[in-house]
Amino acid sequence: MPAVAGLTFLVLPLLGLLVRAPWATLPRRLAEPAVLAALRLSLTTATLATVLCLVFGVPLAWLLARGSFPGRRLVRALVTVPMVLPPVVGGVALLLVFGRRGLVGGPLDAAFGVSLPFTTAGVVVAEAFVAMPFLVISVQGALRAADTRYEEAAATLGAGRWTVFRRVTLPMVAPGVAAGAVLCWARALGEFGATITFAGNFPGRTQTMPLAVYLALEQDVDAAIVLSLVLLTVSVAILAGLRDRWLGGAG
């Protein structure tokens, strides 16, 4: 029974969206260029953020799972902080570091004229900041569960650390990496607080779907519902597709 209640609690709000959707005007609303622009931006930035997380998150997960250094427990805890931090706070923190007056952003702006806030790159950074822990935790779990004796076997065959990682460890934890990447992508797609704080809101450049939904709510609830439906449909379709293809065994 609690399971059914739990399911109902999760599904009912989604049904509410469907019931309240303005089906009659749906096609016209969907065809609006602003909707398409926001959707395209969301998909692009979430994907780029996921790539960024993979590039930096997988080695980090490896370090946390296999490395031994003082304060490893503390570092492990720190990595998950963005998960519990309100995303808006994350956005402010990003501004303080990468902003025009920020610790890193300041010198960057002065030297190269590069500034992240209010750019699509800024959206990617904000999404990656919030979503990376999901990837790191997933990959770290897979790495800790993996049998290290295969890595030893590879070493006796003459494989150096990097070769072992690339040709043995990574393929063996691939399901974990895939699961982590999907979680990470989904989190990036829904990211709102850090994005609007760090990257601002400009249609076509930094206005992702969640931002469009929020602003649409100010004026036109129906428009917000339509946008939410689009986001819901796209994410469910992609998650379902990936799950079947990659996560069959792991899921």
Partner: peptide
């Protein structure tokens, strides 16, 4: 000397063939 530089062949107890290859 690290194992990858020893040129010593090992047949492990459960063989440990790489499952993905």
């Amino acid at each position: 000397v690290a194992p990858e530089r020893r040129h010593i062949g090992v047949v492990f107890q459960q063989y440990l063939l790489f499952p993905h290859l």
